[in-house]
Each structure stands twice: as structure tokens, then as C-alpha cells.
Design a binder for these strands. Structure first.
Lengths: 343, 343
DNA sequence: TTGTATGCGTTATCAG
DNA sequence: CTGATAACGCATACAA
């Protein structure tokens, strides 16, 4: 059987399509009696209410917002930082009865950009930086909000954002370690530098990631210390644990290790303890983000307001009139027990 | 400026709308030269590719599937069981380049059902049972798949499903504890029985949840043991910890405690240890689900194949031709160190 | 290879 | 209070 439409009902009932439409959407536009008849007939004919897509086309709004991820979605669900952001974002959306569409648009996969084209949404947000997917969305005329700064301030693209100053955050970390006297530091980088060997010299990656800004800041803050950057290829506690091999099992072990994220830092701390090394006594460890579990683990880190990022991103999308649309939130160096002065 | 459409381009170029459409979707349907001209012109006019919604209306497909949750979305992201399911589900969807829309439809909130009406999707899945939202989706003619059996087998609704036999699982747990000699057991129930006092007598709740089947099974399996059911109101480790108060801080402490989920059971184990009680020595604890962390924690539990549930749910939605659409997956009692015979 | 007519299902507008 | 008409933007079927 073909799909029943308002037209069919109208025909059977001998009324206009408009009357049927009104029966569903604007009860005040027709007599209660007629409305009753329409609804009853509709039910009898197996009509199930206005078609969502048709209505969207007509109204020009979908009441749905996309969240894009550079990674596979399963990563988005497993990374605590991502989950926290998503929770805050979704709370705002739920309150406004808007729904959320998840889009995975790996930077590598050019084909995936069509997902942006084909998404029936009113706007796009991402915990990520201003990646190609965001630009594509804007080309479509959609509002966008990104939550990680990847380019130098000033070279801003067109999109709105809610970020922290990752460069400054990195700088504070570097400066802090320098003041503690650390002269040999290893830096665990994330996904952007996949496949590259450890680097003594830092060249800005061709990918503009927040790693880049954090790393630049750290290097600057550390001044002349000897720094080795280890590209882990992925941002996970597994990667952090794996870093134990590359960092701890060598003669010239560094006195401090900085990971570009807490998940990685916490994984690395596990690796330390497994080898009988206590962070904050035998080696210093610093992370970024300040996850809930970081407090329990005693990890010195940069706190950033994840939930505010998620909440504000949602609010910016929902309210195009909101005045301040380029937001830089504060961050803070939280010193815990995982760092110590060099003897 | 108004939105640029294919019609506008066609007019300017003096070709038909169809040619413009083809230039974007079927390059083989027109000369490379003309196509080139169309695309160039389109770009110049600020046309950004076919409109997603219009295309969906025309084609009748959205390539998007909804996932419904009975809880707030933030819960969906924080519960490990839910996250595992979602990860598996999304992996299949990603592979087929389909996207996912998240819908929160609390059972209590009747208004939320409109979210189902207004969702532009090709199908609906849920980790939940065959709740009203699912029925609503089917009324709309959408395929549905649910992943938790809530009714007795035989009283099946119309939807497809991927479940385990929760009653049997419960029975095995009860039987196991009975054989260990446990005569006084407390049962921590989840969300369904919110607000109710502890129950000595079990009446099937008016909500058909998997709790119901598990609980019935447990009671049956335990035979004549004295069972007290404590409705925790929510399914979280916090609730499990909170149960410590209701269970451990009393004279007639039970010899065994069963939680309807591992998260809760693990939380309860924390509460035990906080009071100096060691699960598996001073008290027996059993859960359901077998999360990864349950193995580490030594929790005796029912293993169920979460990832298979998610994967199969996605496959059923993506392939309406797939033959077996009512799937009951195997479960298994995994005995670990949290249970022991009564002295 | 290109064009024409038409429908997808709904709702705004405006006239009765 | 009710109805006729015209979009919304695109793509299928078929004709040229």
C-alpha cells in the first residue's frame, strides 16, 4: 500500500488539504467537530501524522544539529573529554527539544565530506578545530561552532568558536617545569603527528591541531631545555602506556614528561608505576584537560572548562542572535602530586 | 540574498534544471564541457550543492537512523554498557556511511514522543526495550529494533529485536546463589521502580523493563530464599554506592546482593570496601552485563554480548531483507571472586 | 546528450 | 471557519 497523505484524507473527506493540515497543526483554525472527523478518518486510513521530511522542506528548519568528529564515532564515545563535552552539549539541546546528529568526518577521508552535504541539519558543532568539514558546512550556509583553536589567533576563519588559549596553556606548563629545574623533557603528541619519528626539532605539522599550539607554547615556556617530541599517533590511555617503552626504557630518561592530553598522561603514569617509578618522585608528569579522574590520580594538568565549551557551543547554535560568538574561556594550571622539582 | 537554487542556475545558463541537477549527481548524463560550465557558474553564483532536505523528500530516504534513549542523553554517554553498544552500532553505520541521530524520549515525558514524529530518519533502534517511542515509530511505518526484552516471550510486539533471555539469566544467578547456600538476599533494582520502598513481595512493576525479567528469574532461581528488593531509582555506580547505606548498615545484613547491572554492582562493591567488607569473603555480590571493568574488579556476573547487540541492531536497520530479525543471543554466568559459599 | 512535465508531502497566503 | 493555489528544491520517467 502506498503512503497515505493529507491529500488522500482530504479527498475522501471532501475537504481541502489545508483543513487536514490544520487539524494536525492548528486546532484553532477549524471547528472542533470537523477536526474530530478529520483525525478519526486519518487514523482509520492509517495516516500517521505529517511527514517529517516534507515538513522540514516546507518550514526550512530541521531542529537538528550535527556534531562532527574527526575520529571514528566509537572514539567519541570512549574519550572522557569528548563524552563530557557531548553531555553538556546534549543537555542544552534536549532542553530546547532539538536533536543531535553524529557525523564522523575523518580528515583523511575526502569522501566523508559528502556527509556534511547530505546532513539535514540547522547547524554544525564540533569539539574539534576548524577542520574542512566545518568550512564545508559554512559553504552550505550553516552556522558552525568549533571548540578547539588550531590556528594562531588572528588567522581566524569565519566560524564561531568556544576555545581556550592553548598556546598560553602550553606556555604555562613549560614555564612551570622550567622553574622546577627540568632540563630534559619528553613531549607526547597526539594524532596529528602519526607515523613520524621522535623529533628533536619542532616543525609545525601540516595539520593545524591544538597539539600544535600546545606544543609551541610548551617549547616557548621551557626556554632552552632539551625537548624530544614523540608522536603517539593517537590520543588514548593505551598510547600513553605505550609511551612507557619509548620514554622510560632508555638510559637518558627525561626528568619530566608532558602529554597533550590527560588520557594519555594517565596512561603514561600507569606505565611508570608498572616499572616501579612513582610520578612526582622519580619523574614528573603533566597533562592537559583536567578530567575528573585526573584529580584522583594526582595529575598536574591544565584545567579547561569542557562542559562550558559544550554548553556554549549548543547555545550559540540555538541562538543565532546571541551577541558574543567568539569565546575564549579561561584555563588554569592545576598543580598536583605528579610533578616535583629536579633534585 | 535569497537562497540560490538549481533553478536559478539553469535560468542564468539557459539550460534546464535537470541538467544542473545532473551536473551534480550524474556526471555521465551530460558532456564534460557543459558540466564544467554548470559547476563553474554554480560556484560563482554561490550555489553550494543540492539541498539535503529537498533531496531527502524527493528520494524518500534520509540515510539517517535514530537511536532512542529512555534517559537523558548525558546518561547514554556515561553508562559504559550504553557506550559499548553505541560504539558497535556506530561502527556499522559509519561503514555504510549512514549517520546517527540521537533522540531522548523519557518514558515519563509524553510530549517527547513528538521527537519521534519529527525525526527525519529511515529507522529507529534502541538499547532499550519496546517502549512507546518504538511503537510510535512503527506507527509511522519506520523499521524498529530494540535490544532489551521487557515482555514475556510470546507477548512480542511487532518490532524486530536483538536481545538475550533476561529471565533465564536471572534464573541462573538465583540458582547459583542458592547452591552456594545463600538464604538472605538483597536485590538492587534500577530505574523502573523509582520512589518505591523496599519490597519483600515482588509484584511485577507496571513498567515492563528488563529489570522485571531479571528479577523474576532471580526469584525463581533462588527458590524459597528471603529476598528484599530495593528500588534504587537509577542505574549508576552512585546508586550502587548509595545502596551501601540501605543494605550494609543494618543488623540483618544479607549474605548476598544482586544488582541488576554491573555499574550498580561495582558501585556497591566500593561501598562494601569502604566499610571494610571484602566482596567474596564477607558478602557475595553479583551483577549483570559483564563490563570490561567487571573482570578487573572480580565481579561475578552475567555476560551478555553488548557489541553484538549493537552491531546486529545496525545491520537489521540497514538491511530490511535480512532474514532473521528476532534474535536472541546467548548469555553466560561468569563466576569470579565476588561470590562465595555461605560458611 | 539535453529538456519537459510532474510529483515528493507539506504549509503560507490570501481569498471566500 | 474553510478552501484554492503556490511554493519548498530536487530528481524520476520519459520524450526529444
Amino acid at each position: 500500500m502506498a503512503k497515505v497523505t493529507q491529500q488522500d484524507i482530504a479527498k475522501v473527506l471532501g475537504v481541502s488539504v489545508m483543513t487536514v493540515s490544520n487539524a494536525f497543526n492548528r486546532p484553532d483554525q477549524l471547528s472542533a467537530d470537523l477536526r474530530e472527523r478529520v483525525l478519526e478518518r486519518a487514523a482509520k486510513m492509517g495516516y500517521t501524522g505529517p511527514d517529517a521530511v516534507a515538513r522540514q522542506l516546507r518550514s526550512g528548519r530541521t531542529n537538528t544539529f550535527a556534531v562532527v568528529f574527526e575520529e571514528r564515532l566509537s572514539y567519541a564515545f570512549s574519550d572522557p573529554f569528548s563524552v563530557a563535552w557531548l553531555a553538556a552539549f546534549s543537555e542544552v539541546m534536549e532542553r530546547k527539544r532539538a536533536s543531535i546528529t553524529l557525523l564522523s568526518v575523518p580528515a583523511a577521508d575526502v569522501d566523508a565530506l559528502v556527509a556534511i552535504q547530505d546532513a539535514a541539519v540547522d547547524g554544525v558543532a564540533g569539539l574539534c578545530g576548524d577542520q574542512p568539514a566545518m568550512a564545508r558546512a559554512r559553504e552550505r550556509g550553516l552556522p558552525t561552532v568549533y571548540c578547539t583553536r588550531t590556528s594562531e589567533p588572528g588567522s581566524e576563519q569565519a566560524g564561531d568558536y568556544v576555545v581556550i588559549d592553548d598556546y598560553a596553556a602550553g606556555f604555562e606548563v613549560g614555564q612551570y617545569l622550567r622553574r622546577l629545574g627540568h632540563q630534559r623533557v619528553f613531549l607526547l603528541a597526539g594524532a596529528a603527528y602519526a607515523g613520524q619519528p621522535p623529533m628533536k626539532e619542532y616543525h609545525r605539522g601540516d595539520l593545524d591541531t591544538s597539539d600544535h599550539l600546545r606544543i609551541s607554547g610548551v617549547l616557548e615556556g621551557l626556554g632552552g631545555a632539551e625537548v624530544t617530541i614523540i608522536p603517539m599517533g593517537t590520543n588514548s590511555s593505551t598510547a600513553g602506556r605505550a609511551a612507557g617503552v619509548a620514554v622510560l626504557d632508555r638510559r637518558d630518561r627525561p626528568t619530566a614528561v608532558i602529554a597533550v592530553s590527560d588520557v594519555m598522561a594517565l596512561g603514561f603514569m600507569d606505565a611508570c608505576r608498572q616499572r616501579g617509578l612513582e610520578p612526582g618522585r622519580d619523574i614528573s608528569v603533566v597533562g592537559f584537560d583536567d578530567l575528573p579522574e585526573s584529580a584522583a590520580g594526582g595529575l598536574t594538568t591544565i584545567h579547561q572548562p569542557v562542559r562550558d565549551k559544550g554548553r556554549l557551543a549548543a547555545e550559540l547554535l540555538l541562538d543565532p542572535q546571541r551577541p558574543d560568538r567568539r569565546i575564549v574561556l579561561p584555563h588554569e594550571l592545576i598543580v598536583r602530586s605528579s610533578t616535583h622539582p629536579v633534585a
